[in-house]
Nucleic acid binder design. Structure first.
Lengths: 199, 199
DNA sequence: CCATGTTTTTGACGTCGTGTCAAATATTGA
DNA sequence: TCAATATTTGACACGACGTCAAAAACATGG
């Protein structure tokens, strides 16, 4: 059979970068094809549809991001871990020039229309799934911290609160384009959750 | 001159409902024209472009929403005010069937692409502006509460925190479609900000 | 070494979206 | 009544998604 003329993973990487920068609906398959040096039809042959391509590109991103998150959450005091968590989160939002924002949050709001087309639904689930997995990581970290006496609240509630704040940060990032503001909110959140004093 | 055959405000109302349900990019001018019983060209004549129509439709919504917010924030103890604030926020997200989510947050993420087309920028600013105005209302409420001895933190930081949580709630609403969860997070946030005990 | 089969590539097509334009139309006011 | 003016209408250009059949490139087996 005829061999494929492009590397599958290269295309996923290029496609996700475009989705990240311009949004899913703002990125056309022609854009991706041009950038990847591939014919538009070849993308349909290889991936099936725009949503399917998005899905694969996003999984690729999510995998790497989860690894980085686990690392950030895995060392030092609970306060240090949460600080590293917010740092990574905000740094990720502010990566690129101009900053690209949070792809997960954008995808969720972009494809989470009340009356979506239907194929979008799979992508929406993938975005929601990453949020769930991050929440679980944060909750585990808080639970471990609680056992070590570094935290005495409810890990489940606190993790949900923290995740909510990170999603809010993603929105404020787009609204105000003010990185110091994001970092202040993050620090304030950590103080609220752990108690402002020492701990 | 020839009189206009439709009511301007009717069209704005119908248009915003569609934008809210299906998202800005997911709503075509043909959809709006059909729903309003107006020819597509007439919309261009009356409003100029899709973004301009969105802008006017959104201003119309924002005005009404701000009034409702002020009412929610204007009566009772600080705790009651904040509870009413979150109630209104979540009820707004969950209005419609299926629930339509938060139009502001969706608009911000949908049009806040790093590489937007340019005309979208005005709409993005309008969304961000509502967020700013809500933040100011919350901050005023907290300041007043502080003067009455109901709150002893920094009103500015706390207001920013609360606004961040509401934006996060808008995202989680799309992600998990779980209204009780949203209300739990809201209650938890109020406890964190005001102190869990009495106050 | 060639023929066959399989996959990829390529280009044309249909449909729908935005936005523009000129021509037709309906009022108002002189 | 008639001219001026704004609105409506339909055609057009352009770009998006997705489909399809024909062409092309390779691998394998004879």
């Amino acid at each position: 059979m005829r061999p494929r003329e492009f590397d599958n993973d290269d295309v996923l990487r290029i496609a996700f970068d475009q989705f990240w920068r311009k949004g899913v609906r703002g990125t056309s398959l022609s854009d991706i094809a041009r950038d990847a040096g591939v014919q538009r039809g070849s993308l349909y042959n290889a991936f099936g549809s725009k949503e399917a391509l998005l899905l694969q590109a996003y999984e690729r991103y999510a995998g790497g991001y989860l690894v980085a998150l686990q690392e950030a959450l895995g060392a030092g005091s609970l306060r240090k871990r949460l600080t590293a968590f917010f740092d990574l989160t905000i740094t990720n939002f502010r990566s690129g020039s101009p900053p690209r924002g949070c792809p997960t949050t954008r995808g969720l709001m972009e494809l989470g229309a009340a009356e979506g087309e239907g194929l979008d639904e799979d992508a929406r689930k993938a975005f929601a799934n990453l949020v769930s997995r991050i929440t679980a990581l944060v909750e585990d970290t808080l639970s471990a911290g609680a056992e070590r006496g570094e935290f005495d609240g409810n890990p489940t509630s606190a993790a949900l609160h923290i995740i909510t704040v990170t999603r809010g940060l993603a929105v404020l990032e787009r609204a105000f384009d003010d990185e110091p503001q994001l970092r202040k909110i993050a620090a304030h959140t950590i103080d609220l959750v752990l108690g402002k004093g020492g701990r």
